[in-house]
Structures are given as C-alpha cells and as structure tokens.
C-alpha cells in the first residue's frame, strides 16, 4: 500500500486496541449508520408542504413534495395555474425528481465508505449529505422563482396577476389564495442525518486521531 493511500484511508485499528476500547471505535460507525438510515427513510416522508387557502376551497388545497414526487392537489392547482399562465408543476424539477433516489443512494454509499476511512479525508465523502437539505431548498426556490417569473403573457388573468416569486417557506399569497409553506418530516430527517454525521465526525476524530499521530511520526522517522 502506498504511503499516500495509507494516509488517505488512515490507520487500521490494532486488534488489541479494539478489544480493549471497542466502544471508542464503534461509536462513529454506528452514528454514521444511523445517519444513513435517517437519510434513506426520509425518501418516504414529505420534504415540503404547501397549503393554499381560498374562500371556495374550504378544505384547502395541498401540495406535498417528496424528493422524488409531487403529490396531492396537483391537478387542481395546475388547472388554476393555467389561468395565470403558469406551466404545469409536473414540468418543474423533473430531472431532480427522477435522479433524487439514485443520488441519495450514492450519498449513503459514500458515507458507508467514509466509515472505513480513518483519516480526516472521510469528511469529503460526507459533505454531500451534510449539504443536501440546503441544496434541496435552493433547488426548490430556483424552480418556484423560475415558474413564477415566467408566466404566459397571453393567459386570461395576466392582467391581474403579474409575474411573482412564490413564497418557499412561511406565508405568502397569490390571487385570492393565501399560501402556507413549511418543511416536512422528510426534510427534518435529512437535516438530522447531516447533524448526526457532524456528531459522528467528532467521535471519528476522537477515535482515529490518536492512532494517526504515532503513524505520522513513524513515517517521518523512517524518512
């Protein structure tokens, strides 16, 4: 094994050390594992909700976004959106929705690999998971803004509803509708996943850092 590679993947744990301090080395592994589970489970929970309220919809209209799907009253909302010239919601983030599950599996696998790398470089593999929730929001904002600002000028209500940026979080409004948008349980699971990974790296560093120091000194001594 080249010195570079061994520095990259970090030191292996001596059997004796593992037997005496098992918890120390298990903790980061288990933490990463739980983080990966949370991320996978989040696929099955909504990331984002929007509720639309108007007088003639006493039970409200609902939009729910999963990482790979947009559900609930999409058809009715599309029907209403055609009056203001907004494109059907199904055309938004089509690539993201089709790729999201693969992307998330890839991220999970990267964290899996990270669990076996006992150097600080493991962090690089975990950055996508940590940044994922922020990326989701930025993407959502991008598409909402894009759709809201690019209304068909020939639409029937183009005179009363001008291009606008829909509210991604919190209270907004469009026409006679009040909108309330909030993050869903899936999103919070993804955030928890990222947070656990950061916590995991604290344990990771505590476990492997001491092993690295003598190893580096040994290398130096050999040179």
């Amino acid at each position: 094994m080249s010195a570079f590679l061994s520095r990259l993947i970090g030191p292996r744990i001596p059997d004796e050390e593992l037997r005496t301090n098992r918890a120390r080395y298990l903790t980061p592994t288990v933490t990463f594992m739980v983080a990966r589970i949370l991320l996978l489970v989040s696929i099955f929970f909504p990331y984002w909700h929007m509720e639309l309220e108007a007088p003639q919809y006493p039970n409200g209209l609902f939009l729910t976004a999963y990482v790979n799907n947009l559900t609930e009253d999409v058809k009715e909302i599309d029907g209403l959106n055609h009056y203001i010239g907004m494109r059907p919601l199904g055309e938004a983030a089509a690539f993201e929705r089709s790729a999201s599950v693969y992307l998330m599996i890839a991220m999970v696998l990267m964290v899996e690999v990270a669990a076996f790398i006992h150097s600080k470089w493991a962090v690089l593999l975990a950055i996508p998971v940590i940044g994922f929730p922020v990326g989701f929001l930025i993407d959502l904002y991008f598409w909402m803004r894009h759709f809201g600002l690019n209304l068909d000028p020939h639409a029937p209500l183009s005179n009363s509803v001008k291009p606008f940026v829909p509210t991604v979080l919190g209270e907004g409004g469009i026409g006679q509708f009040k909108t309330y948008a909030e993050l869903g349980n899936g999103y919070w699971l993804a955030v928890a996943s990222g947070a656990l990974i950061i916590v995991g790296f604290f344990f990771h560093r505590r476990a492997y850092r001491p092993l690295t120091l003598p190893a580096t000194q040994n290398l130096k001594a050999a040179a």
Partner: peptide, 20 residues
Amino acid sequence: VVLTMIAGDALGQDTTRRRR
C-alpha cells in the same frame, strides 16, 4: 432500514394531508 421504510411509508400516507 427496511422495517422503518415500510413503517415510514404507511405513516407518510397519513401525514400528507392535514384535515382542517
């Protein structure tokens, strides 16, 4: 993971629409 996903799926269906 598998068990939680199954449970999560069932739960997810229920929580999507908040009835007023």
